[in-house]
């Protein structure tokens, strides 16, 4: 079984590459075992107590329809926060993506610096950014918008510079051979090629932001999260169920809209 040498009838010897699968499997088992210990994971608890999960879930059903009128305002706040943050973030992402792209910026240092900047920005947990923003700008939608804005800049920025770097630079070369400046070659050669993907990324990030915006209220950054945390605190699960229902319907609707738009873009 462990003999990896094969001799063919012609006398040629072929040596098989050792498979890495046993090693990887062993490593995974060890890591899982460690992680199970550290997190105090227990299947027994899960089996004995699992039904507790459904206690809250059952409390949510049926949702309390009477709560609906109180949801609209925070819902619109959430949508507005995500829209504004995504739009402004996506706009700022373009110059940053250009400065981070190796094939547009000649200096390795400049491109590297902006890449690093975008990475750091992406690493900061949005909830932490939101919390800091509430300290600086006060409680409310402004803080949430800033958190979403920062995340969108980093997300759209990263995907866009990757897209730019993956472009076939032949077109760029061709336009330079026509006597265009680098900026003009970007405007006419690169922009039309990345625009659909860029718009699509922006829409995608808007969808994600909408979901995320619902959490931001938890730290006081405005929107649905505020009433969500309030109702959860009061253990009024029927109201929580109503909030979640509205959120699911809204998110599905906007997702559907944005997917239709994205399909048209491709």
């Amino acid at each position: 079984m462990f003999n990896r040498k094969f001799q063919l009838a012609s006398g040629k010897v072929v040596v098989a590459r050792p498979s890495k699968i046993p090693l990887i499997s062993l490593l995974m088992i060890v890591l899982i075992a460690i992680a199970l210990q550290v997190t105090k994971f227990s299947f027994t608890t899960l089996l004995l107590n699992g039904h507790q999960f459904f206690v809250i879930l059952r409390g949510m059903l049926p949702p309390n329809l009477k709560f609906l009128p109180r949801i609209w305002q925070p819902l619109f706040d959430t949508i507005k926060m995500s829209f504004l943050g995504s739009l402004l973030g996506a706009l700022l992402a373009v110059p940053l993506a250009l400065l981070a792209a190796n094939n547009i910026v000649r200096s390795k240092w400049i491109a590297g610096f902006f890449k690093f900047f975008l990475s750091i920005l992406r690493t900061l947990p949005t909830i932490v950014v939101a919390l800091i923003a509430t300290f600086i700008f006060g409680l409310g939608t402004m803080a949430g918008t800033i958190a979403i804005f920062m995340f969108t800049v980093s997300y759209v920025g990263k995907l866009t510079y990757e897209q730019i770097e993956a472009l076939d630079m032949g077109t760029f070369e061709a336009l330079e051979s026509l006597g265009l400046t680098r900026l003009q070659a970007f405007r006419y050669g690169v922009m039309p090629q990345i625009l659909p993907t860029y718009l699509s990324t922006t829409l995608f990030s808007f969808e994600g932001n909408l979901r995320y915006a619902a959490i931001l209220g938890y730290v006081g950054a405005g929107g649905l999260g505020i009433i969500l945390s309030e109702q959860l605190g009061w253990r009024d699960y029927a109201n929580v169920g109503m909030i979640l229902t509205v959120l699911i319907v809204t998110v599905s609707l906007i997702e559907w809209l944005s997917q239709t738009a994205r399909r048209k873009l491709q």
Partner: peptide, 20 residues
């Protein structure tokens, strides 16, 4: 250079057109 290049056309193996 750019003015000079504008009087010289160039054609490539992979066409290098602007897609979309």
């Amino acid at each position: 250079v750019r003015q000079f290049r504008s009087k010289i056309g160039m054609v490539f193996q992979s066409f290098n057109l602007i897609t979309r």
